[in-house]
Simulated scan of single mutants.
Amino acid sequence: MKRLLIAAGGGGDAIATAMVHAALHGPDEPALVLTYAWERLVVDPVPGPRRPSDFTGTVTAGPTLRLVTPRSAPRPPAGSLLPRLSADLRPALGLLDPYAGASGLARQIEEAAAYCEAGHVDVVDVGGDILADGTEPTLRSPLGDALVLAACARTGIPTSVHVAGPGLDSEVPEAALLPLLGDPLHTLTHADTLSVQAVFDWHPSEAGALLVAAARGIRGVCGTRDAPHPVTLGDASPHVYRLTLARALEINPLARALAESASLADAERASERVCGFSEIARERARAAQLGQEAGESPGGGTAPSEPRPLPRPMPRPLPRPLPERFAEWERRTADSGIAYVTTRRIAEELALSPAQLTALRRHLSTATPARHTPPLWRLAAVEA
């Protein structure tokens, strides 16, 4: 027998789900975590979620359910960190395929319950957008969470919904969530993070990193990438809250609208009606923009260009040392009131290659050890 959990948002939610499971039930209790392979364009250049046919080396656990193992691999051009994540997390990972809508997800959850011999499902969401009402101006990715709620309701299997770290995903503000959540079920501690601490040496999840930081006692303003406002780690940030499935459905109108969805296209249309947008359509537009910036023509390949006269050679300035570039960026960032940053924000805003990021991490950790407060980085202004 295994406990059955669902990482509602995919990506980094699988890490947080493993941590919550270890905190509530012990790290050695067998568990299966169902998660989407929907890791956004930073990992996967193909818009939308991946399905089992996008992987090699998965293990069959039911007619439509597949497990991702360290031997699994995404089929190019798709990308996924789930195979590597399956090697670093103790629970097994099962793949959620949303292409048949809530009805298809319900079948997969039922198969997973049979595989685990589980009579209960624990859904875990980091941040709380699983309780979005669809009108939040900062809402970016409500679809996966809402589909999980709708699918769990279709199964009839008793289900609890857990929200960890309210507001940490920068989608629904903490102040809007706390009145909906009641008293916390559990407060995560440093000890609860030990089972996942090594993952953030390589995984780009920011909401998960903030949850771990909060559990380790870090408090203050933290800057993430591509968010309208920084996140403040406060007293509620390490809390885990539990709601009934019925209460979550009552709060989330998109989940109710997805009840009869039989395809991902159905789900997209429901999101457009309720929330005014489809996050998959936004991903498609962003992927197309990135392709154009890379010089791809609409039909693929590199856009042709007219021959141009060769310019006269100009002396090329020497590249600035990486520590110098970081110091300038750090001053600007700290001046905006930010005390901590994620590794992903550093890497993306400085446009660092993996080798450069490794070199910078080594420099910051050895030259000024107090900078590294795993999995975040403390800006110099905090040290004064």
Rank of each mutant, 00 (worst) to 15 (best):
V172T: 06
V172L: 15
P173T: 00
A175M: 07
A176W: 03
L177G: 09
L178H: 01
L178P: 02
L178V: 14
P179G: 14
P179C: 13
P179Y: 12
L180R: 07
L180M: 03
G182W: 12
D183W: 15
D183P: 12
D183S: 15
P184D: 05
P184W: 00
H186Q: 05
L188R: 00
T189K: 00
H190Q: 13
H190G: 14
H190C: 05
D192G: 05
D192T: 04
D192E: 00
T193D: 05
L194S: 02
S195G: 07
Q197K: 10
A198V: 14
V199Q: 02
F200I: 10
D201V: 02
W202N: 03
W202D: 02
H203R: 08
S205D: 04
S205L: 01
E206Q: 15
G208C: 11
G208Q: 08
L210T: 07
L211E: 05
L211N: 12
A213M: 05
A214G: 13
A214N: 14
R216M: 11
G217Q: 12
I218P: 07
G220D: 08
G220R: 08
V221E: 01
V221P: 07
T224Q: 04
D226Q: 13
A227C: 05
A227G: 08
V231I: 09
L233V: 10
G234C: 11
G234W: 14
D235Q: 07
P238S: 02
P238R: 03
P238T: 04
H239R: 04
V240I: 12
R242F: 05
L245C: 04
L245P: 01
A246Q: 11
A246R: 00
R247V: 13
L249M: 04
L249W: 01
L249F: 03
N252I: 09
N252E: 15
N252S: 15
P253N: 13
P253T: 02
L254W: 11
L254H: 11
A255N: 07
L258W: 05
L258S: 07
L258C: 12
L258Y: 01
E260L: 00
S261I: 03
A262N: 13
S263N: 13
S263T: 15
S263W: 06
L264I: 14
A270Y: 03
E272T: 07
R273E: 03
R273C: 09
F277K: 07
S278G: 06
E279L: 01
I280E: 04
I280R: 08
A281F: 01
A281N: 06
A281D: 07
R282F: 09
R282W: 10
E283I: 08
R284L: 00
A285Q: 05
R286G: 11
A288R: 12
Q289F: 04
G291S: 10
Q292G: 06
Q292F: 12
E293R: 12
E293L: 10
E293P: 10
A294Q: 12
G295N: 00
G295K: 12
